[in-house]
Design a protein around this nucleic acid. Structure first.
Length: 451
RNA sequence: GGAGAGGUGGCCGAGUGGUUUAAGGCGGCGGUCUUGAAAACCGUUGACCCGCAAGGGUCCGGGGGUUCGAAUCCCUCCCUCUCCGCCA
């Protein structure tokens, strides 16, 4: 969420900066609501002040056993008036809040202008894409004889899930262990374990709700007000139930960013406690609504995948240095594995809703003959922190101020496995296991059909 | 699942209808004293909103109600803790 004060005082400027990312801010509507809010809020506050004053005088009069009939007569007329004005104010503020929650973050000035992913700017490359003296296969074909099974997953669940067996499953797990150890031991992150289901407030905090509910898997959990409400809902579809039923549904996390960043929701952190750096492995669940037909082959785009996530909570003035560090930490994984990659700065048009600046790390995939996203590292500045009410006590001002939040994959395990299968395959259809993973594999050097 | 007790500022904790701007303590900050530190003592210290300011308003888990007036009374939901049962 943007700073409401910024919208009040520099509305046109905000609109101009949002236009860079292709977002049209409805300036007229916001201005109009804002004017109404101001006048009604003033009204309400004057009525409240009068009510407080009268209540005090009545109390004093009664204590002295004096007659308070006149005062009580005036006070008796106030509640109805107040109630009306308060209702109006609530409605306007709710409308403003709703609008604000749907406004994306302002892009940082260093973000290149652009319309879509074609305008992203390459920052650097690392490593050389491997040369093959045979036609390299994609991971689906390489994995077919090594324990990568899509048909089994379709049977037990459906499309966009995968089953792995034997050494391949172990390699997948080894990747996760390796990443966790690297970030925890060498990069100074604290490992955390968190819930895989979260409440709506957490998703609102990190920005997935209210706008992107369709991307999430929801676990319905309804609470009924009374017996009549239970009866009313019998046999109805969940979506059609609303009256007398409170929605306390959980959601499967789309990324560890949600539970981990929400660790600091509603907290005021001491300056000495910053920066906080977390590394966390979780499964991620995404509905992939709207991506029909995209990446249907293989395990590039799944409803369920494993990821090791990096999250940093930092002082505002340090957040851009932290973004460089966090990105470098994620890159280190690929360097240790020996996988070629490049880093691109997303352009304004390709930026995610909550991000002020994002670097994507793209790994080389021989099966697709191009670089594919394997990590996305973002600085959200205070956009998430404001929704989260995540603050720190700034010694300079002595006041609680919003922190800056960052996160990035370090890395997506499924896609990293894909990269290993494709980059390290040989002519026999075997896959060489990167040396850094061998300690996690009982010394195994290659994946072979025998297992 | 059954029974009970609770949710008050960064933390602990008092407060059962009005003269309360939520007592007191801890922690934080400043000072006195000291070579320095500690201790002691003195002072100070909540968040948020509107406003150029003066000032005003909101907040005692959330929501609703009673009342001229609610931290306090009523309803409801959420959460925490204790005991019993069950359980990986």
């Amino acid at each position: 969420m943007l700073d409401p004060r910024l919208l009040r005082t520099q509305l046109d400027d905000v609109a101009r900066r949002l236009a860079r990312r292709g977002y049209t801010l409805n300036v007229a509507v916001i201005q109009d609501l804002e004017n109404q809010r101001k006048s009604i809020q003033t009204d309400v506050q004057q009525l409240q002040a009068r009510r407080n004053e009268l209540a005090k005088k009545i109390g004093q009069a009664k204590a002295k056993k004096e007659d308070a009939a006149d005062l009580m007569a005036e006070a008796g007329r106030l509640p109805e008036l107040l109630k009306q004005q308060e209702a109006k104010l609530d409605a306007i503020q709710a409308r403003l809040e709703e609008l604000l929650l749907g406004v994306p973050n302002l892009p940082h000035e260093s973000v290149p202008d652009g319309r879509d992913e074609n305008d992203n700017r390459e920052i650097r490359r690392w490593g050389e894409p491997p040369k093959f003296d045979f036609q390299p296969k994609d991971h689906v074909d390489v994995g077919a004889r090594l324990g990568l099974e899509f048909d089994a997953a379709v049977k037990i669940t459906g499309a966009r899930f995968v089953v792995m067996e034997g050494a391949l499953a172990r390699l997948h797990r080894a990747l996760i262990q390796f990443m966790l150890d690297l970030h925890a031991r060498e990069h100074g992150y604290t490992e955390v374990y968190v819930p895989y289901m979260v409440n709506a407030a957490s998703l609102r905090g990190t920005g997935q709700l209210p706008k992107f509910e369709a991307d999430l898997f929801k676990v319905p959990r309804l609470v009924f007000d009374d017996a009549a409400a239970i009866e009313e809902t019998q046999g109805k579809k969940i979506d059609s139930i609303s009256a007398k039923v409170a929605d306390r549904s959980f959601y499967l996390i789309p990324t560890a960013e949600v539970p981990v960043t929400n660790l600091v929701r509603d907290e005021i952190l001491e300056a000495a406690a910053l920066p906080r750096k977390f590394v966390c492995h979780t499964p991620c669940f995404r509905s992939e609504a709207g991506s029909y037909g995209k990446d249907t082959r293989g395990m590039i785009r799944q409803h369920q995948f494993e990821k090791v996530e990096l999250v940093q909570i930092v002082r505002p003035q340090e957040s851009y240095a932290a973004l460089e560090q966090l990105t470098a930490n994620a890159e280190r994984v690929l360097q240790r594995l020996g996988l070629a990659y490049r880093v691109v700065a997303l352009c304004t048009g390709d930026l995610g809703f909550a991000a002020a600046k994002t670097y994507d790390i793209e790994v080389w995939l021989p099966g697709q003959n191009r670089y594919r996203e394997i990590s996305s590292c973002s600085n959200f500045e205070d956009f998430q922190a404001r929704r989260l009410q995540a603050r720190w006590r700034n010694p300079a001002s002595g006041k609680p101020e919003l922190v800056h939040t960052l996160n990035g994959s370090g890395l997506a395990a499924g896609r990293t496995l894909v990269a290993i299968l494709e980059n390290f395959q040989d002519a026999q259809g075997h896959v060489v296991i990167p040396e850094v993973l061998r300690p996690y594999m009982g010394g195994l050097e290659r994946l072979t059909p025998a297992g």
